[in-house]
Amino acid sequence: MTVRATHELHRRRLGRNAGIGLALALFALLVFGLTIVKLARGGMIEGFDHSLRPGLAERAEPGG
């Protein structure tokens, strides 16, 4: 029977990988939260909306 004791090296790697994984998960969560905040405000949407929106077209008509 093989003794499969976890080596200190692997414990250190596990800790490092878990920490980086947690940091990435928190980062993804933060980006998601920021996206919701920005979308809720709506400021960035019109600037990057490539489709013709009837609301905008109607507003543009009176001035030519």
Partner: peptide, 9 residues
């Protein structure tokens, strides 16, 4: 990997 035979870190 994972055995006690691995050299010191």
């Amino acid at each position: 990997a994972g055995t006690s035979e691995i050299a010191p870190a």
